[in-house]
Design a protein around this nucleic acid. Structure first.
Length: 866
RNA sequence: GCGAGAGUGGCGGAAUGGUAGACGCGACGGCCUCAAAAGCCGUUGUCCGCAAGGGCAUGCCGGUUCGAGUCCGGCCUCUCGCACCA
């Protein structure tokens, strides 16, 4: 007799249940208006070709939420798509001679299969890819809408040029002076570019952050800092030449410290300020300095260590309140043209940069703010500027005022004189969206010699990408294409030139969540009724690396879409969860070569190379990356253990917002748990009363009561944990239920009633449903159900069973725990006190002293103070 | 430099101001087996003690409280974000 213990075989069962869900259409987003809607979305992937563990973690979490909400009676929208434009496709085309489209679509097919193998409850009928003309045609439409609404415009600007990727980068894509993808040192170039007017919403984007109470505080803060609002003053200084001639234009500066105006000892402008250009034109020394700044300004090392440097323009600024005081005007390397007005006045005593500069060039340091508790005479400025609050001194009409009051007074007087005004300044700048790349959404405009920039007529959309492009030389293949860009001007029919720039791919991902509401709408990007039904996204889940770029752009786009009329709200994501990364140990051999996890074995407790037996050094867990070889392929894990095991491990291991370390032992543990649950149910399934008889127990026996309590406590706890995104804790509660069921079955002092056992097992299966959906279905069927867990309601906890009649509380003497006592729930304080004082360990600890005080917290603790 | 977050067993981690270490991993001992795998039972913060029992323990120092991992003040360390922003 072959009595091998039967095992759950996910390779056989998982595809079977995936097919069952698909046949039943379980995950189609229903338009049943009777049910409340819930839109759960995970950040859609770039189709690189294979999913990685980060995807597994991200999509598992989203799937738990989607399945749970469905079970709670919500009509759930849970879609998936592909962020499919981007440079890797062009690189693949260049290196492997496949077309970017071919490469991308075959990657999508492969990854779709992998995601399906995970058993995600997605509505695949809504799948979209941003590289489909059926998607980007609407992006082009929206761009024309944005032109109409003055939310898109063209200007020449100094842009960040990535010399390796040969493209322009947004400020957000420059990290420490380097391109976010290529890592190349970014250069400054003057180019005419398309911009989105994100600054039009700066104030609103900032203020509305306060309403996003289901976003992580950290992300809101990062966006707040990125928008960078500051209140200050714009001040115009008259300029005079060395011979006293008045310069035609005053110099406009920006400051947040108007109160220190009497401490001014110089002015400075950015190297790319118009005044610097004018000065450079007549003085080669200045021209040389400006050129030097332009070159140095892009290199990381110099940015961080650069010493404050400048050259005099030969002009002087007249102090607005002290007519006789002339301030030399410099071109200085630490002034940024992009911030404020690109010009400042320097007050060395109260600004560290100004002080460094003044010391270098021997400029006066005038103290105008003193701490409240110090006499002005005692103050001196060494190498450190005084930047704290205090009282104004040596400042004429400001003397004796607090800093804040002084700012007001200065602003009022300048405004009265017409020399300046209050001004709110933002660090945020308009979003440059032009990219000199092929594999992106073409910007639908035509350049005509006579008519200028002409939008492509809507009837002519989409502007499709040509298929026959070559990647054999650097630069934009669209620009090199022999015919594509040559078109007739829509207005005058004269020969004209197509815009060959494409959109930044962040544009594609800034509105896909809205498109999912009506993914097949042909005439418009978003059907208003569908958007009104589904938006906002109730729960958005993704990596914190998108805390600024993608999320800010999406918030901007939603505002733009509202202005145009596509949607009726400003904030696209009501709830946001940022998950941690998946990390893994690293391994190196004696030569420092990285090794893959599967190359490493353990012999005599030491890590060695599996083949050679040579010793291996284990490094700390880091983000999974191919270059370090510390990657684990989800497909291999799913093939070996099944999707449920991978999902369970991801959920069980670590709180979802933290980095999670993938370990072989952990996966084995998850696998054993899968088998344990399956066995638990199979061993008793035949002996149970039929399905439908659960919970009908009138048996008040101890074992039955205890098991019912365990089950209902698990329901209450797991429900709470899933709602709060504490999946690891929910997993622990499910373990406890499994332990309780096992203990009840093995108990010597009376078995639980079969109906109670059935109820406990069914509860277990339903609680597992969102986490390990295939195993849940398999177990549900084994318990005799013909229905699907995916279509079964979430269990409800009976409050009378969640609390027990007796509780055990601790008894302390002078704050130290000495004993515990079991009493009826809600026992009277007096009874508790008496019971506690009667305990042996308590009396021993009291050493015969009388209780001075007894603190009784009902159902919590008793503390005897002696 | 500015801002935010985090420091708890061998490890991942639990703990509305109320029994610190739930749950899992690992480890150790045992059962089953010819043997193994799988499974099952038990032990597992640390120190003293044969035991009963007791001492010490949540990065460090202080404070509030009957009671602090949790609150307050001051340090240390690590992680992340921003960074010449006037």
């Amino acid at each position: 007799m072959d009595d091998q213990p039967a095992r759950y075989d996910p390779a056989e069962a998982e595809p079977r249940w995936q097919a069952a869900w698909e046949t039943r259409g379980c995950f189609r987003a229903g338009d049943n208006a009777a049910r409340p809607k819930y839109y759960v979305l995970e950040m859609f992937p770039y189709p690189s070709g294979r999913i990685h563990m980060g995807h597994v973690r991200n999509y598992t979490m989203g799937d738990v939420v989607a399945r749970y909400k469905r079970a709670r009676g919500f009509s759930v929208l849970h879609p998936m798509g592909w962020d499919a434009f981007g440079l890797p496709a062009e690189n693949a085309a260049r290196d492997r001679r496949v077309s970017p489209a071919e490469w991308t679509y075959s990657n999508i097919a492969a990854m779709r299969g992998q995601l399906k193998a995970m058993g995600l409850s997605l509505d695949w009928a809504r799948e979209l890819a941003t590289c489909d003309a059926s998607y980007y045609v609407h992006e082009q439409r929206m761009f024309l809408d944005m032109l109409d609404h003055d939310l898109a415009y063209r200007k020449e600007a100094a842009v960040n040029w990535d010399p390796v990727d040969q493209t322009v980068l947004a400020n957000e894509q420059v990290i420490d002076g380097r391109g976010w993808r290529s890592g190349a040192a970014v250069e400054q170039r003057q180019l005419t570019q398309w911009f989105f007017r994100i600054t039009a919403f700066a104030e609103d984007l900032l203020r509305s952050l306060d309403t996003l109470d289901r976003w992580p505080e950290k992300v809101r803060l990062m966006q707040k800092n990125w928008i960078g609002r500051s209140e200050g003053l714009r001040v115009r200084f008259d300029l005079v030449e060395s011979d006293g001639t008045l310069w035609p234009e005053p110099l406009e500066i920006y400051t947040t410290r108007g109160d220190t105006l009497f401490g001014a000892s110089f002015c400075a402008v950015a190297p790319d300020h118009p005044l610097a250009a004018t000065a450079a034109a007549r003085d080669p020394a200045i021209a040389a300095f400006v050129e030097e700044c332009r070159r140095a300004g892009t290199s990381v090392a110099t940015l961080e260590t650069a010493e404050k440097k400048g050259v005099e323009t030969g002009l002087s600024a007249v102090h607005p309140f002290v007519p006789g005081r002339m301030l030399p005007v410099y071109v200085a390397n630490f002034i940024l043209m992009e911030y404020g007005t690109g010009a400042i006045f320097g007050c060395p005593a109260h600004d560290q940069r100004d002080l460094d500069f003044a010391r270098k060039y021997g400029l006066p340091v005038r103290l105008v703010v003193a701490p409240r508790d110090m006499t002005p005479e005692a103050m001196s400025v060494g190498d450190e500027a005084f930047t704290e609050d205090g009282v104004l001194i040596h400042s004429d009409f400001l003397d004796g005022l607090e800093v804040e009051t002084a700012k007001e007074a200065v602003a009022a007087r300048l405004e009265a004189q017409g020399r300046g005004e209050r001004m709110v300044n933002y660090r945020l700048r308009d979003w440059g969206v032009s990219r000199q790349r092929y594999w992106g959404c073409p910007i639908p405009v035509i350049h005509c010699e006579a008519c200028g920039v002409v939008p492509v007529p809507r009837a002519d959309l989409p502007v499709r990408l040509p298929d026959d492009v070559r990647f054999d030389r650097p630069g934009n293949p669209l620009d090199h294409h022999p015919t594509w860009k040559h078109v007739a001007c829509p207005q005058c029919s004269a020969p004209a030139r197509r815009e060959t720039d494409t959109f930044d791919t962040f544009v594609d991902s800034s509105w896909y969540f809205a498109r999912f509401c009506s993914p097949h709408a042909a005439d418009q990007p978003v059907e208003r009724a569908a958007a009104d039904r589904w938006m906002p996204v109730d729960q958005y889940i993704g990596g914190v690396e998108h805390a600024i770029l993608h999320l800010l752009y999406s918030r901007f786009f939603t505002r733009a879409m509202r202005q145009i009329g596509y949607v009726g709200l400003d904030e696209p994501f009501a709830g946001l969860f940022t998950q941690g990364m998946v990390i893994h140990e690293t391994y190196r051999d004696a030569n420092g070569q990285w090794l893959y996890p599967e190359q490493v074995a353990t012999r005599d407790g030491r890590p060695v190379h599996g083949d050679s037996g040579a010793p291996v050094t284990i490094g700390p867990a880091e983000k999974m990356s191919k270059s370090r070889c510390n990657v684990v392929d989800p497909e291999a894990i799913i093939a070996q253990y099944g999707a449920d095991t991978a999902r369970w491990f991801m959920l069980a291991d670590t709180p979802p917002e933290r980095d999670s370390e993938w370990t072989a032992a952990g996966v084995e543990g998850a696998w054993r748990f899968v088998q344990r649950v399956w066995r638990l149910i199979h061993e008793v399934a035949d002996a149970l009363p039929p399905a439908g008889a659960a919970g009908s127990s009138t048996d008040a026996g101890g074992a039955s009561l205890a098991l019912r309590q365990a089950a209902h406590r698990a329901i209450a706890a797991v429900t709470e944990d899933i709602e709060a995104f504490r999946f690891n804790r929910g997993v622990a509660r499910i373990h406890e239920l499994v332990n309780a069921i096992g203990a009840a079955q093995g108990a010597m002092d009376g078995q639980p009633a079969p109906a109670v056992l059935r109820e406990a097992l069914e509860t277990l299966v339903l609680l597992i449903g969102p986490l390990m959906p295939h195993l849940a279905e398999e177990a549900w069927a084994a318990l005799g159900h013909a229905t699907l867990v995916a279509e079964t309601a979430w269990p409800a906890a009976d409050p009378t069973l969640v609390q027990s009649g007796e509780i055990t509380i601790a008894v302390q003497v002078n704050g130290k725990r000495r004993a515990e006592v079991t009493v009826p729930r809600d026992a009277a304080q007096g009874a508790l006190e008496q019971a506690a004082l009667a305990l042996d360990p308590v009396r021993r600890a009291m050493e015969g002293r009388p209780a001075r005080k007894v603190i009784v917290v009902p159902n919590r603790i008793v503390n005897v103070v002696v």
